[in-house]
Design a protein around this nucleic acid. Structure first.
Lengths: 352, 352
DNA sequence: GACGTCATTGTGAGCGCTAACAATCGACGG
DNA sequence: CCGTCGATTGTTAGCGCTCACAATGACGTC
C-alpha cells in the first residue's frame, strides 16, 4: 500500500515520522529514547537531532498501553488547605516524583463512603497503579476496605487499627508527650480540647491524653470538643476560662489552630498563659511559634510520612511486599515553647 | 489460529472478555460503557451484569490512545503548604473534576527555569492535555513563555503583564483597598512590609500601596521586606516598633502570616494595636480572625480563580478561545476587623 | 407484498508504542 | 576460508480500546 500519509501539521509527529526523518526504523527511535545500549553513537545522534527538530514527544498513552505501566499514582485527600494534609500531600508528591511517578490528586470536601468510592473510581479510570488515601476519618476507611479495587491502596492517618497497609504518626505517643510534659512541669491534671469524634487522629490523641492521666493516678476531666477551627477553639476557651481557679491549670489542645482560639479566649478572660494556664497544641504549624505566647506543640514529620507511604505503595505495586500486613508508625516530637514554660503559678491557682 | 487464551487471573479482564461472557461483541460493551442510546435494555443489563461479575475496568491507556484524549490536566505549583497556593490547588482540582478531568500536580520547592521546565516535561510525558501554572515568580514565567510545549498553558498569579493566557486576583486593587482604608480611618501615611521581590504578587501589592499614597499626596516611606513567614514579620515588626511616635501609625503587611509576626513584635514592644498602630494583612487565612487583635485583611476568592482558570484552559484545549489573548482578573475584597478599627490615637502619636 | 427506515448489533482498521524475534554485518578463532 | 559470536538494526505482533461502516431484522407504507 502506498505511504500517502505526509506529516500533517495538525497531528503531532509519531515515532514513525521521526524514524523516517532520521532514516532508521521506529524501533531504533524507541531504543534511543529508552537509553538502550546497543545503538551506534552516530545513529543515536541522528535520531536525537530529528526528535529535536520535529519537536517530537513520546505518546504516553501508547506507551502505557504497550508497557502496562502508567507511572501514575493516585491520592485521595480532604481538608487539603489545612497544614497537616497540605504538608503530607507535598511530601507524597515529592517522594513519588523521585521514584519517577506522577501523582493525580482528588481533594474531597468531606470523606464519606460515597465520595471516597467515587474518588477511587475516578482514579481507577485514570489508570493509576496505586493509591494513597489520606483517610483520617472512619467512613473513608470503610470505603477503602469494602471496595474491590484493581490496585493496592495505602491508608495514611487512619490509625494503625485498620486491616489495610497503613502509615501513621503515633498520635497517642504525641498526646502522651504533651500530657506528660504538663504533668512533669507541676500540673496536677490536664484538660483536653479534642478534635471531631469522627477523626481517628482526634480519638487517638484523646486516648493518649486519657491514658497518661490515668497512669499518673489522675481522673481525667471531661474533654471538650472542637472542629479543628480557631473559632471552635475560641468557644472552648471561653468555657475553659470558667474553670480557672477551680483546678484548671493546663490544657492539651488537639491542634494548633484551636489552641490559637483557646489562647485568645483565655487572654480575653484575663487569664495569663502560661502563668495561670499552660497550653499545648499539636501539629507545629509555622505560625505557632508566633502565637501569643509561642505555643508548645507536637511536631509530626510529614516528610517521613510521605516517603514511607510511597515506598510502601511501590513495594505493594511491585509485589515486593505482601498486601495486608504492613503498618508503619512514625514518632512525633514535643517542642517546648513559652505557652507551657516557665510555669509560674500564682497563689490560689497553684496545683501544689 | 486457535483461541487458546483462557482468561488468566493475572491479567485483568478486557472488553473482549466481557463481550464473550455477555454473548455480544466488544463494540456493544463499549456502547454500554459509553452510554450510547441504541442498545436494547436487556442487552445492556446483560453486559452490565458481566462487567460487575468480572470486576471489569476500562483500560484508560487504550481508551486514551484511541480517543486521543487523556482527560488529565497538569498543575505546576510551589509553596503548596501556604494557605493561598493550597486553596488555589484545591479549587483547581475541584473545578477540573466537575468537568470530568483528573489533575496531576507537580509541587516544586522553588520556581526556577530549570525546575519549571522539568515539571512541564514530566507532565507532558504524563500525557496532560493542558497545564495550569501557579507561577507567582518571574523565572517561572520565563520558562513558560520560552519553552515549546505541545499543550496550552494558563498562568495563575503571574500578574497580567505576561504574554500568555492568565488568571489573576487584582493584587494592586487589594493593596489599594487596604491602604485606602487606613488613610480613610485617619492615618497620615501607611508603612509597608512587602513580600519577596521575586514574587509578582509582592511587587503588585507594593505598587498598589505606593500608588495610593502618592495619589493622596503622601510620599511613601521606604518599604520593609519579608519572606512571607511569621518570623520575617516578627523581625520587621521590631524595626517598625522603633518608628512608633515618629510618624508610624499604620502598617500594610503583604500577607497575614507576616502580619502575625508584626503584631507579636509590636505587642512585645509595648505598642498597642490598633490604638497606637493599625495593621492590615492580606489573604484572610482562617486564623487571622483570631489573631490578637483580629486582623483586617484582604480576601482573595480562590474558588473563583480555580473555576475561571480551568474554564479558560478547557477553552484553549477545545480551541474555543485563541491562544495568547485572554487575561482574567478577579477582584479581591477588604475585610475590616479590630486590628484597624476602632482607631484611637493617643496624644502625641495622633496623625492629626 | 416489495421497499425504505430505524433500531440494534457486528466487523475491520487503526491509535502509537514496546517486546520478541529475525536479519545483517564485521571480526575473530581454528 | 568458514563458522560463530556480538553488535546493530529491522520486522512483526500485539497492548485494549473507539470509530466508521456494514449487516441484520422488525416495522410501516403505498
Amino acid at each position: 500500500m502506498a505511504q500517502l500519509k505526509p506529516h500533517t501539521p495538525l497531528r503531532p509527529p509519531t515515532m514513525a515520522d521521526v524514524a523516517r526523518q532520521a532514516g532508521v526504523s521506529h524501533q531504533t527511535v524507541s531504543r534511543v529514547l529508552g537509553d538502550h545500549p546497543n545503538v551506534r553513537n552516530e545513529t543515536r545522534a541522528r535520531v536525537l537531532h530529528a526528535i529535536e527538530e520535529m519537536g517530537y514527544r513520546r505518546n504516553s498513552s501508547a506507551r502505557a498501553l504497550a508497557t502496562r505501566r502508567t507511572l501514575t499514582l493516585g491520592v485521595v485527600a480532604s481538608n487539603t488547605t489545612l497544614y497537616g494534609p497540605a504538608s503530607t500531600l507535598f511530601a507524597l508528591e515529592e517522594a513519588a516524583r523521585a521514584e519517577g511517578y506522577l501523582v493525580s490528586t482528588v481533594s474531597l470536601r468531606e470523606l464519606t463512603v460515597e465520595t471516597v468510592s467515587e474518588a477511587l473510581h475516578r482514579l481507577s479510570e485514570g489508570g493509576v497503579e496505586g493509591v494513597i488515601a489520606l483517610a483520617p476519618q472512619r467512613p473513608a476507611v470503610e470505603a477503602l476496605t469494602e471496595l474491590r479495587h484493581p490496585f493496592p491502596v495505602v491508608a495514611v492517618g487512619t490509625g494503625s487499627g485498620v486491616e489495610i497497609p497503613s502509615v501513621n504518626v503515633d498520635q497517642r505517643l504525641g498526646a502522651r508527650l504533651a500530657t506528660g510534659h504538663l504533668l512533669a512541669t507541676g500540673h496536677r491534671t490536664v484538660w483536653h480540647l479534642a478534635g471531631p469524634e469522627n477523626w481517628q487522629e482526634a480519638v487517638d490523641r484523646a486516648d493518649g491524653w486519657r491514658a497518661t492521666l490515668e497512669e499518673a493516678g489522675v481522673t481525667p476531666p471531661a474533654p471538650l470538643r472542637g472542629d479543628w477551627s480557631p473559632l471552635s477553639g475560641y468557644r472552648a476557651g471561653q468555657e475553659l476560662a470558667g474553670w480557672v481557679g477551680r483546678g484548671l491549670t493546663a490544657v492539651f489542645v488537639a491542634n494548633d489552630q484551636m489552641a490559637l482560639g483557646v489562647l485568645w479566649a483565655l487572654r480575653e478572660a484575663g487569664v495569663r498563659t502560661p502563668q495561670d494556664v499552660a497550653v499545648v497544641g499539636f501539629d507545629d504549624i509555622p505560625e505557632s511559634e508566633f502565637f501569643a505566647p509561642p505555643l508548645t506543640t507536637v511536631r509530626q514529620d510529614f516528610s517521613a510520612v510521605g516517603k514511607r507511604s510511597i515506598a510502601l505503595l511501590l513495594d505493594l505495586i511491585e509485589g515486593r511486599t505482601p498486601a495486608g500486613t504492613s503498618r508503619i508508625v512514625i514518632e512525633p516530637q514535643l517542642l517546648v515553647r513559652a505557652s507551657t514554660f516557665p510555669y509560674a503559678p500564682r497563689p490560689g491557682t497553684a496545683p501544689g
